[in-house]
Deep mutational scan, measured.
Amino acid sequence: RLRTTITPEQLEILYQKYLLDSNPTRKMLDHIAHEVGLKKRVVQVWFQNTRARERK
């Protein structure tokens, strides 16, 4: 499986959303995924990875 490439514009939106809520609901994940044009699962994993990186 190929990795999904996230553009700088998408990253900017994801980080803005992360600052508002680091643990979004399913509904919010759907909305964010639609807004940035990525699959919900990709957005979900991005949030998981970002939370894990923050803990280190």
Rank of each mutant, 00 (worst) to 15 (best):
V42I: 10
Y18H: 00
L2R: 06
V45P: 02
E12F: 06
R3S: 15
W46R: 02
S22W: 04
H34D: 12
L11H: 11
A33L: 01
G37M: 03
H34A: 09
L20T: 10
P24L: 02
I32C: 02
L38R: 01
R53I: 09
R55L: 14
Q44D: 15
R3V: 14
D30S: 09
K27H: 06
T25K: 04
I6L: 12
P24I: 02
S22C: 08
L14E: 01
P24V: 02
L20D: 07
A33I: 03
R41M: 10
L2W: 09
E12S: 09
A33K: 01
S22K: 08
L14P: 01
H34R: 10
A33P: 02
A33V: 04
E35F: 03
R51L: 12
L11W: 09
G37Q: 08
K56D: 04
E35H: 06
R41L: 11
P8G: 13
Q16F: 12
L19H: 08
L38M: 11
V45R: 03
A33F: 00
L11R: 12
W46C: 03
Q16P: 00
L38D: 00
T25R: 02
I13K: 09
R51I: 06
Y18K: 02
R55C: 14
L14N: 00
L2I: 14
R3M: 15
K40M: 13
Y15L: 11
T25C: 08
R51N: 15
L29P: 01
K40T: 15
D21E: 11
L2H: 11
L11F: 05
K56A: 12
V36L: 08
Q48G: 08
Q16W: 03
K56M: 08
H31R: 07
R55P: 13
Y15F: 04
K39N: 08
R26F: 12
D30C: 04
P8T: 09
R51T: 06
E12Y: 04
Q48N: 07
R51S: 11
Q44V: 08
I13G: 07
K56E: 15
T25G: 05
R3A: 15
L14K: 01
S22I: 03
H31L: 12
V45N: 04
D21C: 04
R55N: 15
L14M: 08
A52E: 14
R55I: 13
K56G: 11
